[in-house]
Design a protein around this nucleic acid. Structure first.
Lengths: 181, 181
DNA sequence: AAGTACGTAAAGTTTTTTCTGAACGCCAAA
DNA sequence: TTTGGCGTTCAGAAAAAACTTTACGTACTT
């Protein structure tokens, strides 16, 4: 009688799945999609959209969009199955790379976006300082703004180099995958 | 006539503020709160809740909750102003520490939460393997789940050490604040 | 060429989140 | 003790997001 054991296995899986899903907002992912990820994680075989909908009791449309977001983050991959009509998906098990891809994608683009705006504003403000007829009070405020922006740019430069070290995997020299123990 | 210059300054500030706010979802922060942060950033003086509401055209209640979330992330601090009835707030300008605090707070707790669930499930599954009357098929699946969890635990161990290196500032030895240039 | 099965887009509904206004409790000054 | 100003809590309204159903386009099968 395996029913009891089956039960235990399922419970153990569900505990982990729910934990993962609950923290998926860090990835900018909805909890449902997190549950989808977890389900795929413990499924040894690649799943179809219909199977996912079945497993989660949700519409196929939701599975479709969920899988897409997971694929954009490279957390899930589409699998080639010869002779199969339906698409099959499975999780990408490299969690390190996963983290790196996610971090890169989100933080890098945010950094670039902010740096762009900052540089443009910085330029304008520096030009403004050149203006002769600028009241002392205003000049003071412009200076302050410039300092704030320069301060931010310095940080983003660091952040960018940090992300570089992730993407090149150089970070693993500093924080190795396996501890020295 | 400073009006024109004032205009330029304001535009330059707003560009940066909006950029920052737009990417604040990375911090799990709503855009409105992001705008609040940006406003505080370019205000040379500490602001009161009323001044913030004024500046953003929003209710004082919103400012109160917004400031609280920013304080929880240590992005904003309450300032002691002698003889002032109202509370005053100003931004924490150390963006490096800011990033570290945020990352630590969110990712560390997520990691701990997941590790906890994983270890518990792992234990159960290992115990299950001891059971004599376990069908080969089920045993196989239990093994797979165990591997998945061990794989995750290994990653979280690395992540934990990465966060350690942030908190201790050792990361700056590897990725220095200022480039060597 | 027609039919069928599949994934996705669009529209609509439900749920969740965000924001506001009123009411409350607290502290300081009178 | 009262009064007034302050930050916050709470309930409700408005806005946004998530989810489902329906409908569509495409590709494979027959």
């Amino acid at each position: 009688m395996d029913a009891k054991h089956e039960e235990i296995l399922q419970r153990a899986q569900e505990r982990v799945i729910e934990a993962l899903a609950k923290n998926m907002d860090l990835y900018g992912i909805t909890m449902s999609t997190g549950l989808l990820y977890g389900t795929l994680l413990f499924q040894d075989k690649p799943m179809t959209l219909d199977e996912m909908g079945e497993a989660l009791g949700m519409s196929k449309t939701s599975m479709s969009t969920g899988v897409r977001t997971l694929m954009e983050l490279k957390m899930v991959e589409k699998i080639w199955k010869k002779g199969a009509r339906k698409d099959h998906y499975e999780v990408n098990l490299d969690w390190y790379q996963n983290f790196i891809d996610l971090f890169s994608l989100r933080w890098r683009s945010a950094a670039e976006y902010n740096v762009h705006a900052m540089k443009k504003s910085l330029q304008e403000l520096r030009a403004l300082l050149q203006s002769e007829e600028l009241s002392d009070e205003l000049r003071e405020r412009v200076q302050t703004s410039i300092h704030r922006i320069e301060n931010g740019l310095e940080y983003y430069d660091w952040l960018s180099r940090l992300i570089d070290s992730f993407e090149t995997h150089e970070i693993f020299q500093f924080v190795p995958k396996k501890p020295m123990s």
